[in-house]
Amino acid sequence: MSGRTTVAHRILQFNEELAKTTLELPPGYTVVNPFNGPQKDRVREVTTRFYHKYYDDDKPRRLVLGSSPARRGTAVTGVPFEDARLLEDETGVDVHGYAVSRPSADFLHDVISRYGGRSKFYADFVMSFVCPLGLVRANSKGKEVNCNYYETKKLLELLSSFLVDTLERQLAFGIDTSVCYCIGSGENFAYLSKVNEGQCFFREIVPLEHPRFITQYNGGRKEEFAEKYLSAFRRKGD
């Protein structure tokens, strides 16, 4: 590859930069950072094996962006939309006990299977987030719950420069910017579209309903939504 870095190298380097990131948040909010947390060594081993398996080349890929990692999923494992069971199969690293399988991951990996399997899908796409670190807040009972970067005006204001900066840095993975896929057709799509108006990161952004919305509230329409995902992913950017 004539001295050029691979996509795997660029993603892993981005993760190392995230490990050094500190964010100012409103009272009651906390960052969940898998890259400098108590499981950081195991996360590094898992992510290194995963990305070298699927991204050890210099091929441009399209970006699929969720909002932010879930506290018991990607915010712990370090691999977007992958759950513990699947990562154990992929990497041979025992990740049992600190992450759980989720319906979102199951829906997405059904779509990936229909697309042609994991090798084919990851050869065409990079999955990530608008906010690449997890966010939690304390609810009225003092329990930690997931939250999104757009949950309050103050939170979004404090995170804004971080979000724009990390979006731009993710394009350096070698992203085909003709089209981006946004998981979350409401607030996540609205914010990403607004940023894109000013920054022109992508020629087009395609909104897709969040798998949690599909599985929890529209279970009878899963096939319809899966076909919508597949149709979007199979379409080449103009």
Rank of each mutant, 00 (worst) to 15 (best):
V136D: 11
Y122P: 00
R44T: 08
E17F: 06
I214G: 06
K143P: 04
V95N: 03
G174R: 10
E209Y: 02
T21P: 02
T215P: 01
E82R: 13
Q39F: 15
G73E: 07
D238I: 00
Y191W: 15
V32N: 07
N139M: 04
E209P: 11
G78K: 05
V111K: 07
S67W: 13
T91L: 10
E144V: 12
L25Y: 00
P38Q: 12
G66W: 02
D57P: 00
E157F: 10
C131G: 08
I112T: 05
A75W: 04
T215G: 05
L167T: 08
R169E: 11
C182R: 01
G198D: 14
F213S: 12
G3F: 05
E204S: 15
G37R: 09
L108D: 04
R44E: 08
P211V: 10
R212D: 13
M127S: 11
H9P: 05
Q216V: 11
Y29P: 00
E209S: 14
S193F: 07
S128N: 09
L167S: 06
K143R: 15
F233I: 00
S231Y: 15
E227I: 13
T177P: 09
V100N: 14
A70C: 08
V76D: 07
G198Q: 04
D110C: 09
I11E: 03
Y98G: 07
D165E: 11
T48S: 15
L87W: 10
D176Q: 07
I175G: 03
A226W: 06
R235C: 08
T22A: 13
K153G: 01
S160C: 13
L163K: 00
G184H: 00
V206N: 04
L155T: 00
P103S: 04
A226E: 13
M127T: 10
L171D: 01
V126M: 05
C200N: 14
F225D: 02
H109G: 00
L230F: 10
D110W: 10
A226C: 14
M1L: 09
P211Y: 07
K141V: 12
Q199R: 12
V43G: 02
R102V: 12
Q216S: 15
Q216M: 13
V64E: 10
S68T: 13
G97Q: 06
F107G: 04
L18G: 00
T22F: 13
T5D: 09
G220Y: 14
E187H: 11
G142E: 03
R102A: 14
T5P: 06
V195M: 03
Y217C: 07
S128C: 04
G3M: 06
T91R: 02
Y55G: 05
Y51W: 08
F121D: 00
E24Q: 15
K154H: 12
E17D: 11
E144K: 14
T5L: 12
G237I: 02
F173P: 03
V111R: 08
P80L: 03
T6V: 01
N148Q: 13
F121L: 05
V93T: 07
L133N: 01
A232P: 05
R61H: 01
P132K: 02
G97S: 07
R71A: 13
S68E: 11
K228I: 13
V46N: 09
G37H: 06
P69V: 14
K53S: 09
V195F: 11
Y55E: 01
V164L: 02
V79D: 01
T91C: 06
D238Y: 06
A84T: 07
K20S: 09
E204M: 08
V130K: 02
V93D: 12
E224L: 09
L156W: 00
V100M: 10
